[in-house]
Every structure is written in C-alpha cells, then in structure tokens.
Write a protein that binds this DNA or RNA. Sequence first.
DNA 1: AAATGTATTGTTATAATATAACAATAACTG
DNA 2: CAGTTATTGTTATATTATAACAATACATTT
Lengths: 162, 162
Amino acid sequence: MLEINNAFNSDHNHDHCVSGALNNAKAICKENGQRLTPIRELVLRLVWGSHKPLGAYELLPALAEAGFNSAPPTVYRALDFLHQLGLIHKIGSLNAFVGCSNPEHPHPSAFMICTECKTAAEIETSELQTSFNRVANTHGFQLEEENIELLGLCSDCRGNES
Amino acid sequence: MLEINNAFNSDHNHDHCVSGALNNAKAICKENGQRLTPIRELVLRLVWGSHKPLGAYELLPALAEAGFNSAPPTVYRALDFLHQLGLIHKIGSLNAFVGCSNPEHPHPSAFMICTECKTAAEIETSELQTSFNRVANTHGFQLEEENIELLGLCSDCRGNES
DNA sequence: AAATGTATTGTTATAATATAACAATAACTG
DNA sequence: CAGTTATTGTTATATTATAACAATACATTT
Ligand SMILES: [Zn+2]
Ligand SMILES: [Zn+2]
Ligand SMILES: [Zn+2]
Ligand SMILES: [Zn+2]
C-alpha cells in the first residue's frame, strides 16, 4: 500500500527521525567508502531539523555558529555529497533540500508539500512507478530520474483555514 | 489513452505548434480580459522557439534585438503573465519555461525531459491523476498543484548513444 | 477632447541562489 | 616519513529573481 513518512503527523517523535537518518547515513557512507565528516553530519542534522525543506543559505548561520567556515561552497559541497548518496532530496520548485526517509533503497524524489506550513512528506512511489513506466515506454523514453511534487494543503492546515 | 505533444517527434511541423500556441494565447487572453501585448507575444514566441525549456535570461538578447527594453523585470513580468494564464509551464529543476501544449484546459505541469537534447514533452496526466488523488486522499492532503518531471533519454538520444 | 484612473513598461538597484578556481589542510597509503 | 588523494578554506563571480519607483500607454468618464 501507499506509504509515507510521518512528516504530516505533528505528534510524531522527531528525535527518532533524526537518529534514524544519522544511523542510515553512517551505514550508507561506510558501504560506499565515503566519510561522514563533521560538516556533512552537521548539514544532515540541520536539514533534518524539521520536515520543512531548507535552502542552502539557511544553513550557513548554523555552520558559522558551530565554528566552521560558512561560505556557500562549504554548504553546497555537503549538500551535493548527501544528495549523491541519496541521503537528502532536492525540491526543485523551492530550491531547497529535505532529508530522505528511506535512503537504504535509492528511489525517485516524490513529495506532498504543504503550501501553508511548508512541510514536505515523502511519498512511496512503487505504485505510481507503474504509471510512469507506462508513459515512458509508450514514447520510447528511457526513464532515469523523477521529480514529483504534489502541492496543496496538509490535513492540519486544511483544518486551520479561515 | 496517454497522449503527449509531438515534442520528441523531430519531423513534426513546428510552425504549427507556434501558430497554434499564438491562437490559443489570443483566445485565452480575450476570455480573461487580458492583453497580449507585443512584449508578451514576443516572449511567448521565443519560448515556443523550440520544445527546449528556456531560462528567463536566455530571452533578454532577443528582446533587446526587437527594440524592447531588456532588463530582467521585463521578461519576468511577461513570463509571470503567461504562466498565470497557463500558456507556459515552469520546469522547477531547470529554472526554465516551456510552452503549454493545451492551455485551453488548465492542467498540472507534467513533462518528460530528455537530459541529452533538453527537449521537454508534455504528458497528458488524466490517468496519473487517479493515482495522485488516491495518494492525496489517503493522507487528507488537499491537492492543488503538481510539478511532475520524468527525466531520462528520449528515443532519438537513446539511439545516438556511444 | 480633456481629465482621470488603471495597466503596462522602463529603469535602477539589489536580493537570492549557485559555481569556478585555487590555496591550505587533513586523511589515507605505501 | 613521503607522496597522494580527499576535504575544507577562501575569494571572486555567475546565475536567477525581485523590490521600488518613474514614465508611458491604455481605458473610462466627463
Ligand atoms: Zn520527523
Ligand atoms: Zn527519499
Ligand atoms: Zn513543435
Ligand atoms: Zn501544459
């Protein structure tokens, strides 16, 4: 069935999200012979500060506070590194990044994004995949990557409408 | 069935695409009591120069050549105008714009984008919509907008692979 | 036509996002 | 340790987008 992370559940234990993400990151880096350096780990923690996608420049102040150089290339390098390992996703329409809920299994970027509270909840796409593959096959298109954004109001924000 | 515009068909009569787009634009502007001014029409023509999404700054030289002021606000205003009427779509991951194949019926932005030749072909999403609605409904999400990008190689570029 | 108000465009400046290029340092390998 | 590679520091710049206000064009009423 369609699954999702618990981003839209405001009661969820977010510490669990963060610790899970960190554990995943360590394992995946090890598997790939890559190093989760202090900067990379901090950037990952910051991105996982919430389920709201963060822009690169929103990370710089926290990097500075932590005593690191905080010029743009620093944060973009860390973001690129995490992105290449599938530990974060980029939301194209927002120029912003959000932690991946299931990096153990590489998968396309697919989100429901609340335009009110800005929360982005990852969608499990295995069912959608059938449709996408059919579209691609029909046109001889070799599907390699996907950016799927569903924008609207999450249930919390629907309730709060004026 | 799943339909698509003919962007990936390199033999198609592209003049027909352009003239159709212009006719649509005129009709839709009239319906909405908006004016398709010379700048707006030129920007629409430029975007429709091909099926490859164009960035705002790629339009500026042609605007200058045509004798218009060519500062960024000019082109962004025209792009915003066309976007609001559904005459063009924005491809979030490319920061670029492409003409809409079927503006008479407002619909979400959904494309196959060839990473080799850069061509973007619009996808008819009525079938996908069922899946998206189901995802949204399952989570109490009020779906309002979509950005769907399928990235990969079009059939022409697959053939040309080394 | 003249006066008025609105929509559009011109213009200047600046904000926000992202990368190039090279130097310095840290980590790994033999 | 010396040599090599990976990572980070640093400066500069490229790219994308908007703010703010002035000038002009268009539409509406008198
Ligand atoms: Zn969480
Ligand atoms: Zn993910
Ligand atoms: Zn065409
Ligand atoms: Zn369209």
